[in-house]
């Protein structure tokens, strides 16, 4: 009787392990599925008259002394070589980089085509390039590994599906897409905990990310009243209203306070 119980316990444990192993395999299969597997059939795009299209551009500034960039300790992986300063707040001469700018309100129920081109994330020097990326919902994201070490790419979304895949050196690029809008979705590598980036998934092509000079430009907007949102990973969000007439070219600048960190 006792031996029977022990045998049953062992069998139960083995069945449990086998079930979890199959779950793991299934999860892996789901992760490598087609990039558009989550997407609904795209609705027809709303036409915009190029003759009346307007442009909005500007500069994002940082008011105050930016924090000294922290030094990253990459010693746990000898293959990680390169710039080892953190990218939390990148500001030079008051110009703030890596701010995601997008049209938050004013586009109504317009639909937009999903671009056929991929956006690329490159892992190089054990950092993500770019640090802040914008992508349209359903658009393909190609993730490359140019490092001589294995990374894992692990988005931690609130509204999209979470996944976690490893990518050895010289592996084929990983192809993924995000189905739902989500601003500043964090992505990290659990093998190299300093590696962090943000993906903003939006519906419209009217977005930009500020460069090292703090500048951005959004072209091709139809005339109308809009709310522009400026989002920074540490400094939060600021909104600005703007009205664009046909063929308008307006400047909308904004300033973040360094004390907000």
């Amino acid at each position: 009787m006792n031996k029977t119980w022990l045998a049953m316990l062992g069998l139960l444990a083995l069945v449990g392990l086998a079930l979890l192993a199959s779950c793991s395999k299934k999860t892996g299969e789901e992760q490598s599925s087609s990039p558009t597997s989550e997407s609904k059939p795209p609705a027809a795009s709303t036409p915009i008259d190029p003759a009346t299209a307007a442009t909005v551009s500007g500069t994002v500034k940082l008011d105050g002394t930016p924090p000294k960039p922290a030094k990253i300790d990459m010693s746990q992986d000898a293959a990680c070589k390169g710039d080892n300063t953190s990218e939390n707040v990148v500001a030079k001469d008051g110009d703030l980089a890596n701010v995601f700018v997008y049209v938050k309100e004013g586009l109504g129920n317009r639909n937009f085509d999903v671009p056929k081109d991929s956006v690329v994330i490159d892992q190089k020097g054990c950092r993500y390039h770019p640090h802040v990326l914008a992508v349209i919902a359903g658009q393909n994201v190609e993730i490359k590994n140019d490092d001589p070490t294995t990374h894992n790419i692990h988005p931690t979304p609130k509204d999209n599906r979470e996944w976690n895949e490893s990518q050895p050196p010289n592996a084929a690029p990983i192809q993924k897409s995000f189905a739902r809008e989500e601003i500043m979705l964090p992505v990290k590598c659990n093998q190299h905990p300093w590696m962090k980036m943000y993906i903003s998934v939006v519906k419209s092509p009217f977005h930009a990310v500020t460069g090292p000079d703090g500048k951005y430009e959004i072209k091709g907007l139809p005339p109308g009243d809009y709310t522009l949102a400026f989002v920074h990973e540490k400094l939060g969000e600021q909104d600005q209203k703007v009205t664009l007439a046909p063929k308008d070219s307006k400047t909308v600048d904004t300033t973040f306070k360094a004390g907000g960190m």
């Binding site: 392990l17 979890l20 192993a21 793991s24 892996g28 746990q76 992986d77 000898a78 293959a79 070490t149 294995t150 894992n152 692990h154 976690n164 895949e165 490893s166 659990n190 093998q191 190299h192 905990p193």
Partner: peptide
């Protein structure tokens, strides 16, 4: 913060017995 540095289980990078490259979170 290394809990998900090996993304699979009960295998490790697809293998039960193969020793992975022990760097970083791995």
């Amino acid at each position: 913060d290394a809990g998900l540095s090996v993304p699979d289980w009960p295998t490790t990078f697809g293998s039960i017995y193969k020793m992975p490259h022990m760097v970083g979170g791995v």
